[in-house]
Every structure is written in structure tokens, then in C-alpha cells.
Design a binder for these strands. Structure first.
Lengths: 358, 358
DNA sequence: CTGAAAGCGCTTACAG
DNA sequence: CTGAAAGCGCTTACAG
């Protein structure tokens, strides 16, 4: 104890002289204070393991006393590693994407990677500028939701050799690795389920399709199923609008504003939010599912299984999509080669689907 | 044109020689290719404005040709600015925090700041390690949800002079700047509203209180209101459990499993999620609000105003909390001094509160 | 296992 | 407005 404190007294002025321009201790100060080379300090803090315990503990003590911690920029510049990954999603307001980011984070944090988050609000120009900002700050890998982004984005990633993976998309013949599922097929399955229950008159309530090939694929899947049964989907029965519950309610009201014989008996919604809105809109009209019509959602949000009536919907494990994407990226960073991963949504048949009325 | 291309041909080998160890072009390569000093290239790309248009355009052309973009680590090391901010929240699965991050991002992006995101899952040790990781990577400012974090976290931020602001908290006498609201007061107001409607027997359904002084404050506010009216809140009427809808439903069932005379007439929930669960649980029992009991939520989630019955709840503008926090941080970074900001939740009186039964 | 020294890619006084 | 040069704080061959 006495020794330590006397050392401290002797070295104080020297330490002060040694500090960098901003007054913060540098690795060099730690080295001097511990009486070792800068290389040894660096080795101790990068866990190379090839340092004697004696030196290591002296270095650690000196660092603690000087409140020194490695400075990222210096380290990044010298080692060309930043330990930063990035995620670009449309918005956190959609549970689906928030869950993906959660999953991503949960695995990156274990590997000491910190993650940048960028929200594009479905604007391709914005996703490009987020990507550039992250690139400029040295991201080592990027997870990007969807593939509706400017080609420059992918080109610049390629120029810099930054690995990326597309989440929530599906295009086996596409140029990118993805972790996602077949949106068209999933909606095809939903319609098939309704067919088996006896439905023939379908309607659709969808979120915006602009810059969103996923939603386009969903509609295509619905159309394919309907037409495979020799039927067609009238344009009047396709409502495309905003993401919110209000649009679901308004659309349902519009669809039901006809004679009973002309009404659709099954309403397929592009997501749970719209379906919940449709249910609320129906209630206002005194209609309910599955008595007056059948209704399906998509996503299986946390509330969907608990609201009444329990919503029939398709469950997608977005946390898994996020964590698989992160693992994929980590594997590539370690020298592996990437590949695409297809996950399978599960149809959750609950209370809002049944036989058609009559 | 001809000149440019012939220059290009001449310089190709030279450029190749000039590239850095990783094969990527450096600022120096751009300078050589444009025939100017490195200082000029730097000036062009940091928008200092003090460069002649002639040099600027030559530099930009060279950079484009070499596909060069500034390297963050070099820039950060030389300028001691990283243009990175960070947010630490418990989880993205709670809409409240996701909205805060959205608000934060929306203002940081305008100032060219990229944001790190860390989710602690309500674990103080995890929030500390996120903070350290961000510090090590050079965050310039940090928004942290809540104040239930290890003291080391705040000490290390102070050591490095990194400004931070606490969001969603409220402690006028506390050591930190915050952007939040008075949780106790908000719940006091909720109970007051119920009192005015004639309620006297209260119950509470709350999310976990561990490491969460906000929830503790909420309960304190409820107790204060009840006791200011000379009544008390029986321990049996306080359910504290998990965050999910299921716990809301189960708790409601437990609370109502008594004779009509002993049942609480008003149930105050710690958040909308629990309230929605309670409503669902009530429906299973054939009970409904406000006929059989009154019910309140907190947050005003996007679904809360649309579900039936429309939930009486307290609206908090979390997007604003996030953006105010970011603006605050930006102001401090520009040399201003920080201060705390108190926002006011709004009581949204809707359909689930009314006179007590009988 | 340890150290001296070069170098990572920029910015910024300083001088002109 | 422009340039030569020092320096930001680390890591990493290289030599011992």
C-alpha cells in the first residue's frame, strides 16, 4: 500500500506532462507508468494472451489508476477492425422490424459488436444515406430489411467488401443473401385455408405497396390461390392504404357496405394491425367474425392471440430472423461464405375463420 | 473529356502503387490524382467552404474515379469527432421505448449523427456494458432510458465528458438531466379521476418493479391519492407481475374472484398492455367495463384508442421525449448547457371508466 | 515473452 | 485560397 501511494506521488507530474492534447490518458501514458512498452499494453488489452502475468497486472493497475480505456479510433485505424455492425429497417413502429433488431442485437452483443440502427421510413433514398453514414463510420457488416433499395447501396457495400444480408425478403434467384420467407406462398396458404372452409368471395386489405415488393408478393400469392380455383379477385375488393388500424376499420366498413349476397365472406389482411382494425370496424357495424365473415391477419403480434376474438393469422419468428442474420454475418466476417436462409411461417388457426355465412 | 481520359491512363499505374495496404484508395491518392495537397482534399470533404471551386471540382472528380470516401477512423482520430450518438433502452419490444428511439433518430439523422442502439433487458449490468462498448467506440452523447443503472455508468460518462440525458424518468432533485414526466403525479391524476366518478375500492395491476423506479413511483402516486382520501389500498388488491397481456388477464380474474361487494370497482393498470389483457380477462368472465368495473391504462398505445371498448388511459408522447432528448444532447455538444425537460401526459378519458356498479 | 518503430488515414495549426 | 508536415492513439510485423 505505502509503496503504491508513494509511486503515485512521484509519478503525478510526469503523468500530467504525458497526457494527450485533450487531457485524457493515452496508451503511451499507461506504458510509461507501468514501465513497459506500448506493445505490451496493447497486448494486454487486446487479450492476445502472450503477456506474462506480472506485466499484465502492472499494466492493468496503471490503466485503472489513469482511468484509461482504449480509444476506438486509434484502434480501428491501426487494426482496421471497428467491431461495429449495422441494421437498416423501415421503422421501429412496426413490431416485426423491432423484433428483428432485438434478435440481431442479442447475438451481436455476445461477440462484442455494437450495432448502429437506421430507420428509413420506407424511403429508399434514406436507406442509402443511412448505409453511407454507417460505411463512413466503419461498419463491418450490415443487415438490411427488404431489398427495395437503390442499387448504389449494394454497389457501395460491394466496393468496400462489407458483407450484408437482406432480412424479411425472399428471392431465391436474387443477387443477395437473405433470411426470410416466401411471402407469396404464405398468403397462398392463407387463402387455401379459407377455400377449404368453403369461402369463394374474397377481399383484401393491404398496407402500402410502394417500394415494398414483399406486399406486392403477398397480393400476388393471394391472386394466384384465387385464380387456381378458377375465380378472380375484383378490384373493388382490394383495399390498399396505410398501415394503421384505422385503415383496417374503414376498409372493412367499405367492403361490407353492400347487400349480403355481394359482400366478401372472407377478408385477408396484409398484417395483424389491419386485421385488428377490421375487427374493430366490424364491431361498429354490429358484425363479427367468424359469424358474418372470416378474417385473417399476418405476423401474429403479441396481442393477436389474446384479443377477442382470437385472430387467425400467420406467425413469423422475427426474433429468429434477426438472430440468424447476425449469425450469418458473423460467420462471413470469420471467413465463411454466406448463404440464404428460408424460415417458415406457421398458420395459427384461431377464432376468426370459419364457414361462410348462410 | 480527352484530357481527363488521357490523364486517367497516365495515372493508373501510379494510383495502383499509391493505394493503401488494404487496396483501398486513401485521401493521399486522391490528392495526388487531383494534383493538390492532402489538406485541400480534406477541406473539400469537410465542407469548410474555403476552397476554390476549381480545386474542389478536380478533387471531387478524382475521388469519384477512385471510389474514395473518407475513412471514419482516420477522421475521428485526427479530429476527435465521431458523429456517433447512442441510445440505451430496456427493450424494443415495448412500444414506449421504440418510439423514443424513433424520435431520437429522427433528429440525429438531420445532424449527420449515426446512432448506436443498446437494449439492456432491464439488466443494469447489461446497460453498463452497452455504455462501455459505445464509449470505447467513441459515442459523443448518450440518451439513456431510466435512471436505474450502476453508478459506474454515470461516472465513466463523466470521466470522459460525454454528455447524456435520462429519458422517461423524473427526478427534479436528481443528479442527471432528464426528459420525462412525473410518474407519481400522473397516476395520482388517474386515481383522482376515478374518485370523482365515485369509486372507493381500488385495485392495481403492475409490471415488475425491480430495477424500475418509474413503476415504483407509479404505485406511490396511486397510494398517495388513495390515502389522501382517507382510504387504503389492501395488499390483496395489488398485483405485480410480468409485462404481458396474459398477466393482465390473470390478475383481473383473481381480483374479481370475490363477492360483488368485495370486488374492487376500479382497476388501475400500470400500462395499456396490462389493461388490454385485463379487458380480455374480464370478457372471459362475462364482465365488461365500465358496467361491472372501471379500468385505466397508461401509455396510449396506438391500438388503445381503437379497440373496443375504447380504453381510458394516459397519453405520453414518447416520440417527442426522444426528439427532445436528442436536441438537448446536440445543444450540449455545441457548447450549451443542459437542463431537464418535463413533459405532461394527457388523460384520455374514453369508454372504460364510469360510475361504479350498484 | 518483450520492445523499438513504422504505419493505419485522416485533420489542422502554421506559414505563405 | 493553398501546401508541407506534425500528430491524433492505437496495433503489429520484426527482431531479439
Amino acid at each position: 500500500m505505502a509503496k503504491t501511494s508513494s509511486e503515485g506521488m512521484k509519478e503525478d507530474p510526469e503523468i500530467r506532462r504525458g497526457r494527450g492534447a485533450n487531457g485524457r490518458a493515452r496508451l503511451e501514458d499507461v506504458a510509461r507508468s507501468a514501465g513497459v512498452s506500448t506493445a505490451s499494453v496493447s497486448r494486454v488489452f487486446s487479450d492476445k494472451g502472450n503477456v506474462s502475468e506480472e506485466i499484465a497486472s502492472r499494466v492493468r493497475a496503471a490503466a485503472r489508476e489513469l482511468k484509461w480505456a482504449p480509444h476506438a479510433a486509434g484502434r480501428a485505424l491501426a487494426s482496421s477492425r471497428t467491431n461495429i455492425a449495422g441494421a437498416i429497417i423501415p421503422t421501429l413502429d412496426v413490431e416485426v422490424f423491432a423484433r428483428q433488431v432485438s434478435g440481431l442485437q442479442s447475438v451481436f452483443i455476445k461477440q462484442n459488436m455494437t450495432v448502429f440502427l437506421g430507420c428509413s421510413n420506407y424511403d429508399p433514398a434514406s436507406s442509402l444515406s443511412h448505409a453511407r453514414a454507417m460505411l463512413a463510420r466503419g461498419v463491418e457488416a450490415l443487415a438490411i430489411a427488404g431489398e427495395d433499395h437503390p442499387s448504389e447501396l449494394f454497389e457501395e457495400l460491394a466496393d468496400r467488401d462489407v458483407p450484408y444480408v437482406i432480412t424479411y425478403a425472399y428471392r431465391p434467384d436474387g443477387p443477395h443473401h437473405y433470411v426470410g420467407f416466401d411471402h407469396a406462398k404464405a398468403f397462398y396458404q392463407i387463402v387455401e385455408h379459407l377455400f377449404r372452409l368453403g369461402h369463394r368471395r374474397f377481399a383484401v386489405i393491404l398496407q402500402p405497396m410502394t417500394n415494398n415488393s414483399r406486399v406486392q408478393a403477398r397480393l400476388a400469392g393471394i391472386r394466384a390461390a384465387v385464380s387456381d380455383h378458377g375465380l378472380c379477385l375484383p378490384d373493388d375488393n382490394v383495399c390498399v392504404g396505410s398501415y394503421d388500424i384505422g385503415f383496417g376499420a374503414a376498409s372493412l366498413a367499405r367492403l361490407m357496405d353492400r347487400s349480403r349476397k355481394e359482400r366478401p365472406t372472407a377478408v385477408v389482411c396484409g398484417n395483424d394491425n389491419l386485421a385488428i382494425g377490421a375487427l374493430a370496424g366490424a364491431a361498429e357495424l354490429g358484425l363479427s367474425a367468424p359469424h358474418d365473415f372470416s378474417l385473417t391477419g399476418f405476423d401474429d403480434l403479441s396481442i393477436s392471440s389474446l384479443l377477442r376474438p382470437h385472430l387467425t393469422t400467420m406467425k413469423v419468428d422475427n426474433f429468429a430472423i434477426g438472430s440468424l442474420a447476425a449469425e450469418q454475418l458473423l460467420a462471413i466476417l470469420k471467413g465463411g461464405t454466406g448463404h440464404s436462409i428460408t424460415v417458415s411461417p406457421t398458420l395459427m388457426i384461431r377464432d376468426t375463420t370459419g364457414s361462410p355465412p348462410d
